[in-house]
Design a protein around this nucleic acid. Structure first.
Length: 379
DNA sequence: TCTGGGGTCCTAGGACCC
DNA sequence: TCTGGGGTCCTAGGACCC
């Protein structure tokens, strides 16, 4: 989908249509970055990832909408369900991107325009479609004609198209890799496409091998019964200014851990590993992880473990600017707890989840994480 | 000059097992 | 205690994507 979050906001609110608009990561236009920019905003040079203050400098009468994840997730699911109904093997790539294996379907142009019309009709937004023999080429094709575009890369036009596109347009080639490629004299996608696997292996290691086969292999998407488990679930928050108050910091540990735990429980997952991530004004980024033998979906325990990791590394209430808690080592929760104490705790958490589902996300929560101003993060 | 927040994959060294 | 060889798991951190 094109400028997904911004397009949804414009579809819902007609007053925003045709206007430069950004969707911000937080409620306030200050202290936030651009999550998505409408095409009208992009035309002025506003890009996602940019600080919203800078965006306002470029365009003072920019419209601002805080991100409303629920809407985007809902729309994404509706589109996924529609695409799945077409009967081709499908893969979820990200909230606004899906891959279909259409095999040897002859008239892919007709299929594509049908999909595009349906999405525009039902949701008021546009999609771009790329066709290729594998994910990397299809994804590249979809990027080249945005918005509302269609491009097929096939054996006949492949060289013509790739020779005019810089190599860094390929998904996975970022700044560091691009610099390496430039030093090897590889500037266009075609340069990269024509290198052999041994050459790429020599200079890029395992990544070079993956890149070679990713570009050349004819790919198939298998229809797997169970959806893949996520690898990690995490939340982080940047404070408006550094803080080292133990009560304040531990409240944030708990809040982030609760958000993670809630998502674990929603997907019937337990986590074995807890990652702690901190940004310390004096030291920069700090991250440590630890695995535990008993996996958990309890926010209180996750918070305790995160704080243990901090203390074990000699950090006793350091001055903190940003804090993150992530869980990995995720396994499916297949059995209910055996012991009475665990069972009671489990039932309590389930009840809390049900109350919040019914009455809103913050209907009930541990008292220690009561924040009077979530924007500034004051207790 | 990283600004925020949510992710994935890969590397390389250490601990530990047989 | 060191000699050899094979393997897994854990951890820190880099690169990249949206």
């Amino acid at each position: 989908m094109d400028a997904f979050f911004a397009s949804i906001e414009q579809a819902i609110n007609p007053r925003l249509k045709g206007k430069p608009l950004i969707v911000g990561s937080r409620n306030s236009p200050r202290f936030t970055v651009v999550c998505a920019a409408s095409y009208e905003a992009k035309a002025l040079g506003i890009t996602s990832g940019m600080r919203s203050q800078d965006a306002f400098r470029i365009c003072p009468n920019l419209s601002f909408v805080p991100a409303q994840q629920d809407r985007y997730i809902w729309t994404s699911r509706q589109i996924f369900t529609f695409l799945k109904g077409l009967g081709y093997p499908i893969q979820y790539c990200s909230i606004d991107e899906f891959t279909l294996d259409i095999g040897d379907t002859q008239n892919c142009h007709k299929l594509s325009s049908g999909i595009q019309e349906k999405i525009t009709q039902d949701f008021g937004i546009t999609a771009s479609i790329g066709i290729g023999k594998n994910y990397l080429l299809a994804k590249l094709a979809s990027k080249l004609k945005k918005p509302a575009g269609f491009l097929e890369i096939n054996e006949e036009n492949l060289e013509d198209i790739l020779k005019g596109v810089p190599a860094k347009k390929i998904c996975g080639v970022g700044e560091a890799t691009n610099l390496l490629l430039e030093n090897l004299g590889i500037n266009t996608c075609l340069d990269l496409y024509q290198k052999d696997v041994l050459f790429l292996k020599e200079y890029l290691g395992q990544y070079g091998i993956n890149l070679y086969f990713g570009l050349h292999t004819k790919e198939e998407i298998s229809i797997s019964e169970h959806e893949d488990l996520p690898k990690s679930i995490g939340h982080s928050y940047t404070l408006s200014k550094p803080n080292q108050n133990p009560g304040f910091i531990s409240a944030w540990f708990r809040l982030l851990s609760e958000k993670v735990a809630e998502r674990l429980r929603a997907q019937d997952l337990l986590a074995k590993t807890v990652h702690l991530w901190l940004e310390l004004p004096e030291f920069g980024h700090f991250s440590r992880q630890k695995s535990f033998s008993n996996a958990t979906d309890d926010g209180a325990l996750i918070a305790t473990r995160a704080m243990e990791i901090m203390a074990k590394n000699g950090l006793i209430w350091p001055n903190i600017r940003a804090i993150g808690v992530t869980c990995s080592g995720l396994i499916l929760k297949e059995y209910e707890p055996l012991f009475l104490e665990d069972k009671k705790r489990n039932n309590l958490l389930k009840a809390v989840d049900r109350i919040n589902q019914r009455f809103g996300e913050e209907a009930i929560f541990p008292a220690v994480i009561k924040l009077t101003n979530p924007t500034t993060g004051t207790l």
